[in-house]
C-alpha cells in the first residue's frame, strides 16, 4: 500500500506513472516525426475519415484484428503507401482503439467513485 501511495502522490500533479507513459506514447505516434502524414495517423487512431482500402484494414485492426489477411496489407501497399507508413498507421489504429476502451472504463470508474462520495 505504501508503494502505491508513493507512486501516486510522489510524481507530480495528479498524474500516475502509467498515465504519464500512456500520454507519452500517444503524443509520440500522433505528434512526433514519422513517414505517414499526421492527419492520416490521427485518422487511423480515431478509425474515422479514411477511405478504402485503408479504411477496411484500419477498421479490422480496431475491431477484429484477427481477421486481417495478407490481401489487406497488399491492398494498402497498392494504394500507394510504403511499408513504413503502413507500420505507423497500424500502430496508431491499435493504440487508438485500446485508448478508447481505456477511457470508457476509467470514465465508468470515475462515475462510480463520485456517486459513492455523494
Amino acid at each position: 500500500m505504501r508503494s502505491l501511495l508513493v507512486r501516486r502522490k510522489g510524481k507530480g500533479p495528479g498524474m500516475s506513472d502509467i498515465t504519464r507513459a500512456r500520454t507519452a506514447v500517444v503524443a509520440r505516434i500522433l505528434e512526433g516525426d514519422g513517414r505517414a502524414e499526421h492527419a492520416q495517423r490521427r485518422a487511423a487512431f480515431g478509425n474515422a475519415g479514411l477511405t478504402p482500402p485503408l479504411s477496411t484494414l484500419i477498421d479490422k485492426v480496431a475491431k477484429r484484428a484477427y481477421t486481417v489477411t495478407d490481401e489487406d496489407i497488399v491492398a494498402a501497399r497498392a494504394s500507394g503507401l510504403t511499408e513504413d507508413q503502413i507500420f505507423e498507421i497500424v500502430v496508431c489504429a491499435a493504440i487508438g482503439q485500446a485508448s478508447r476502451q481505456y477511457h470508457t472504463a476509467l470514465t465508468a470508474l470515475k462515475a462510480v467513485t463520485e456517486q459513492d462520495k455523494e
Binding site: R22, L57, K60, V61, A62, A65, Y66, V68, I73, V90, V91, A93, A94, I95, Q97, A98, S99, Q101, Y102, A105
Partner: peptide, 13 residues
C-alpha cells in the same frame, strides 16, 4: 488491458 489490447492488434495485423 491497454497494453495487451495494443500488442494483440499488432500481432494479428
Amino acid at each position: 488491458c491497454f497494453a495487451f489490447n495494443t500488442v494483440d492488434r499488432l500481432s494479428r495485423t
